[in-house]
Amino acid sequence: MRAPLSQFGVESPSSLEDALARMEASGGRLTPMAGGTDLYVYLNAGSIEPGRWIDIWGLDELRGIAEDKTHYLLGALTTYSQIRKSPVMQQALPLLVEAAATVGAVAIQNRGTLGGNIANGSPAGDSLPSLLVYDAEIDVRSVRGSRSVPFHQFYTGYRASVLAKDELIERIRIPKAAAARAGASRFIKVGTRAAQAISKVVGAFALHRGEDGKIDRCRVALGSVAPVPCRMTQVEDHLTGQTLDGELIASAVELLDEGIKPIDDIRSTARYRRFVSLRVFERFLQESRES
């Protein structure tokens, strides 16, 4: 049962600067809330302690999809619905669009934000493997200043990240070069049911071949098979510079098998997660080879 709401506090900042100042002043005791799609579930289930929250939903500075010469820029408050509906995203970042379309249901997609998915840090976060494939960089900001973190270095452990207690995610930057060289790609999500399900396995793969037919860029990213969503760099290195054939596919799958550490939990078993990840990856490579 949930705790009385009177034991919770919410602050409503008027601007990004105001929000950062309040976070600094609180000494790290304010937790940001955006769409609230994770928070409200915890609140209703009574699984969060009473505390203080800062509602950043109203900060338009953090909203919207834009681009500069080198990058696509997604404000931290960009919702899954905005990503799904954006022609730029559909054309340039199809894996992210596909991931956004599988999050919860439409009501969740209207409120849930990309920044929230990153900050919440669930290894099952639907958008995260796609961001890894596109070499996303995370711009974070505090009163102390701004910095940019490559997304594959963002998490330090289960639901732990480099984000300091006074920092907010400001935007996600995706290099246009990475998007352009994604090549053949595949998003996978296996849940308990076809919609409104937390993933048992989530992943994104991309494979680009040069004119000589050799693989010149490759990304293998998986969620729900380790404490953090992660890139399987050993597999990527193994494939890069090679030509896809049966032997290479078999050895790459073997390397992936060694590289993942799925667990048993309420949603699935380690055995199942391992099998499905490997088979879907293998199928992706085989289809890429044939195409």
Partner: peptide, 16 residues
């Protein structure tokens, strides 16, 4: 009961 809610107790959705 570990899943006393409609997120973790999976009834089928319209899609199934």
């Amino acid at each position: 009961v570990l899943n006393p809610n409609l997120l973790d107790y999976k009834t089928l959705s319209a899609k199934e």
